[in-house]
Structures are given as C-alpha cells and as structure tokens.
C-alpha cells in the first residue's frame, strides 16, 4: 500500500464537476500528512488535456478509451478496479453523486477494501484514516476507522481547492475487458423545461412528506400566493406526483438560493439540504424537534404545519394589504 490519495474526477459534457476541487483539496491535505501525492484520475475519450488544466492535483492519471465518451457504469468500474489494484493508494475519494454511488461500492466489493459512505470529514490520526459519515438520514454521525480504502464524500463537505497550474499527466493503457461489456449507452435526456424556474424565485414555500397528501398542497400554495412566491418540494412529494418534478429541490432536483425558504414537513435529509442550505433565510416547520432541517434553519417551530400555515397566510395577507 502506498501513501497516495486518489481522487476520481467526475466530468460531464466537457466540464469538470464541482466535486473535483473539493475532493482534491482534502486529498492534498491528507497526502501531505501521509507523505504521498494527491492524484487525480481521469477517464476520458480524448479530452484529458482540457480537463486536466488547472486541476489542483500533484499528478493526473489518464485512461483513454472510446467507451468513456459517456458515463457507463461497467466501463468505469472495470477501469478503476484495475487501476486501484495496480496503484494500491492509501485512500480513494469519490463524490457521493450518481457516479460515485455507482463506483464506491462496486470498487469496495471488487478490490476487497473498506468503504466509508456519506463521508463529511476525513482526518489522519497517526497512521489511521478516520472518517466521519452521515447516517440515519443525517440524524446521526458515525466516526469510523479505515486503514486504507475508499470514502464516498457528500457534496460541500470540504472547501474547494483553488485551481492552479497544470499537473503532469501520466497516460495509462486502457485495461482489458472494455470491449466485452454487458451495457451500452443509449441516450442522454435533458431535464424538461419548467413551467416555473424555482432557481430564479426569491420566495419558496417548500413542502415535504409531512404535508400528507396532494389535497393539502393548497395550504402551501395559499401562503406562496400571499408572499408572491412559488411552491417547491422535497423528492417524495415530486415522486408521488403531488407537484411537478421541476419543483424538486435537492441533489437530484434543483439547487436554490432564495431570499426566503420555508420548509414545511421536510426532515432535512442530506440530499435535500444539498439543494437549499445556502438560502438567505430558512424557516423550518417540523413537529420532530430532532429533524436535521433545524441544523440549517435560522428559525424553527415544532408546531403542526396544518396550524401554522393558515395562520401565517392570514397574517401575510393582512400585512400585504397595509404595505
């Protein structure tokens, strides 16, 4: 086992994903302490030079193959498993995106190395890597030891490193097995165009599963109308079809930064917080005082949303008349 910290660099449509700078910043810090290098791994179909430019890494390992034109899970796993077996890094950092959820577990199983998932903290304690992970929907954190292994890292866990310089690029041969895959990329579908662009709205009344049913969305709509804002939602509400997918806030929805975000019956799972934690004023209405939404909210109440929403709507309407 070496002392290098590997970072898998995610990129789509010719652009490096935000996670790369966050992971590489942490990798540099750990590599310095461990006496190794921060190594960026780029799988690509010919775009490595452009992607490598400015990457805050000590070195780039580049593997080129036509199948890397799009993210194809089996191809990525095959190539990175081969690379890990050969390089034996101390630690491999992977963002907890769709790509990361595909790779981290697969690589852990294939290379028989431990995995700390949903990681939000990484430190060296002597020779031991200590990771802090979110569990139980963010309600608890776990501190775990992994001698060497893989960490899948939650978005925003580490500050991004400044881009700078162009690290040396080492070309590696593509491994065997990329020509006999069991899966094929068919097409990419862009998200539908929204009736309302929630990322452009200043006031969002956001509803979660606590709203109980489609018939109750009205309560949030009335408040949104009084405020001149719109209604957005957590994932389960959009999945249930109570509101359009385009209103979904979070990891697989939209990232929003409104002046006011009122979270009604939303627990504040990490995947939701990812999309709204930077709102200027966050008000949370949730009957569970331990709900993680209160960790990011500025003001909170454990009163029932079915009581608070109508009462608040009434007052905002009255104030708007006076204003």
């Amino acid at each position: 086992m070496g002392n290098d910290i590997l970072v898998l660099v995610e990129h789509h449509e010719g652009a490096v994903h935000d996670s790369a700078a966050e992971l590489l910043g942490k990798a540099r810090e750990l590599a310095q302490a461990a006496g190794g290098e921060a190594v960026a791994v780029l799988l690509h179909d010919g775009s490595a030079p452009a992607l490598a430019e400015g990457l805050p890494a000590d070195r780039v390992l580049s593997v080129q193959h036509a199948t890397f034109e799009h993210f194809l899970p089996e191809a990525y796993v095959t190539a990175i498993a081969a690379l890990l077996a050969e390089r034996e890094p101390r630690l491999t950092l992977i963002a907890n995106t769709t790509v990361g959820m595909e790779l981290a577990g697969a690589l852990s199983a294939r290379t028989r190395t431990p995995l700390a998932a949903y990681c939000i903290g990484l430190e060296l304690d002597g020779d031991t890597v200590v990771a802090t992970s979110q569990v139980f929907g963010g309600k608890l954190h776990a501190e775990v030891e992994l001698g060497s292994g893989i960490a899948s890292v939650v978005a925003g866990a580490f500050p991004p490193a400044e881009a700078g310089g162009t690290p040396p690029v080492e070309e590696l041969a593509a491994p065997a097995g990329l020509d006999g895959l069991h899966m094929r990329f068919l097409r990419r579908i862009e998200p539908e165009v929204a009736d309302v662009d929630i990322t452009a709205e200043e006031l969002l009344v956001s509803v979660g599963r606590g709203i109980g049913g489609e018939e109750n969305i009205e309560l949030a709509q009335e408040l949104a109308d009084a405020l001149g804002g719109v209604v957005s939602a957590s994932r389960p509400v959009a999945d249930a079809g109570w509101l359009p997918k385009t209103r979904q806030v979070g990891k697989s929805g939209r990232k929003v930064k409104p002046k006011l975000y009122i979270a009604c019956g939303i627990s504040g799972a990490p995947e939701h917080l990812e999309g709204m934690r930077d709102a200027e004023l966050i008000i949370a209405i949730n009957t569970d005082e331990k709900a993680p939404i209160f960790d990011v909210a500025h003001v909170g109440t454990t009163e029932d949303l079915f009581d608070v929403l109508p009462a608040l709507t009434e007052r905002i309407e009255a104030a708007a008349k006076v204003a």
Binding site: P114, G138, H141, D295, V299, T301
Partner: peptide, 18 residues
C-alpha cells in the same frame, strides 16, 4: 470498518426555536 462512535451532530447554526 471499525466504528469508533455514533453521535448526534453538533449543530453549526442552531435555529432559533419559536
């Protein structure tokens, strides 16, 4: 993995509870 401990997260920006 060796679990050292589980704990409730220290809240960074504690909401003002009404």
């Amino acid at each position: 993995l060796k679990v050292r401990r589980l704990f409730a997260p220290e809240v960074t920006s504690q909401a003002e509870m009404l």
